[in-house]
Amino acid sequence: MTIYSFWMFDRHCNCIYTREWTRSSPLVPSHSSHSSVSSTSSATTLPAGAIGTVNASNQNDSAKLLFGALFSLRNIANKLGTLPFNEDTSVTDPLAIHRKNSLKSFATGKYRAHFMETALGLYFCILSDPNVADLQIVLKDLYADVYVNHVVKNSASDVDFPAEEVIGNESFVRGVDQLITALPAFA
């Protein structure tokens, strides 16, 4: 059981954060040619002793493909399965947000992609091997504990990322690593 990588996309459809824990991730072709030039320029340095790469694949075709797949599946889930809007019940019980049908994960032969979308249109995605069951709680913790505390509350970092900007601050990288490497699913 392993976790291969973690991706974040913002509501402008840009990839704002990538973290890969092993070179043998099924998504990153080891012979990436033209995209490797642009990806190293935005790669972020890792804290000492950590493995893998940070922000090395943000402009990759695989990032765009992954986003496309997630976006389409999310749209399908929203359109098929969302309950119709009922004015009366919504006002008395607005906490029933799960009225909307949302994508949780999809699996292929080599990996499973776990997905979460925040109310503001931020996409969180973890790629793990197909045996890992459900990482929704992990995704929610990544959002509520790591992202909100280190990026949103940090006045020096953007909230609305301009094109090609990534999340680079160290405390965020460390926070993500701490959370993920502590999971039992992480080999």
Partner: peptide, 26 residues
């Protein structure tokens, strides 16, 4: 405000409101 809304949504776990009235109450 643009940062506070993320904190708010993360803390409460709410989704988007479906009507302006709902927004007012929340």
């Amino acid at each position: 405000g643009i940062r506070l809304i993320e904190d708010f949504l993360a803390r409460t776990g709410l989704g988007r409101c479906q009507s302006f009235k709902e927004t007012a109450e929340v």
